[in-house]
Amino acid sequence: MSDVLHLSWEYPPWAVGDLSRRLKGILPGLSSLCPLALVVRGDRDETLQMDGMSVYKAGIAVRASPNFIAFSQTLNVELARRGSDALHSEPGIALIHTHDWISSIAGVYLATNFKLPLIISVYSTEETRARPPLGVLNKGIHDLERYCFQRAQALIVETEEMKRHLGGQYRPPVGAEVCLTPEEIFGVYRRWLG
């Protein structure tokens, strides 16, 4: 039974960008410190064991979307759906951890409705990814990032620069913490897991 529920839109073999590689570098080590469940996008709904974790794959019903925000909002309902499956079948889960804004909308859904703390790891933001001038799509993503980051009980980043950037651009109520290793991330978890 898991203690922490992770949400991500990619994890190997599902790979879109760099995030899946980063998670592959962290989650197996972290799962040796505390039991983890992972909800990730997949070809279809499926539950399996992978890298020491319970993995809940979420199939996606809606394929057509006019833009990336529309796609991600739909994806997050599916992640919340499978996250609910995990939370109802593993009552020991006491913490939700999401990765970047793309899975954090579902994190906010689950954290507020199941009354659990939410941790968000931020690897990059729309400000750092997009080239100026920012279009209306970039501004929409920026606002969703702010919405999610402001609802997290802890924010984890990899660099001091990102920590300063978050504080300046998104003004979250909690300061970001730099954590590079599974042990450092587990240190954050222990505030809630005891």
Binding site: P66, A70, Q73, Y109, T112, V136, G140
Partner: peptide
């Protein structure tokens, strides 16, 4: 209207997102 949207569909999704949060 606390968020910005590129089109009507994402506006509707933003409304739904806030409804889910408010449901708690």
């Amino acid at each position: 209207y606390c968020l910005r949207y590129p089109d009507f569909i994402t506006w509707v999704q933003g409304l739904n997102m806030l409804m889910v949060e408010a449901a708690s």
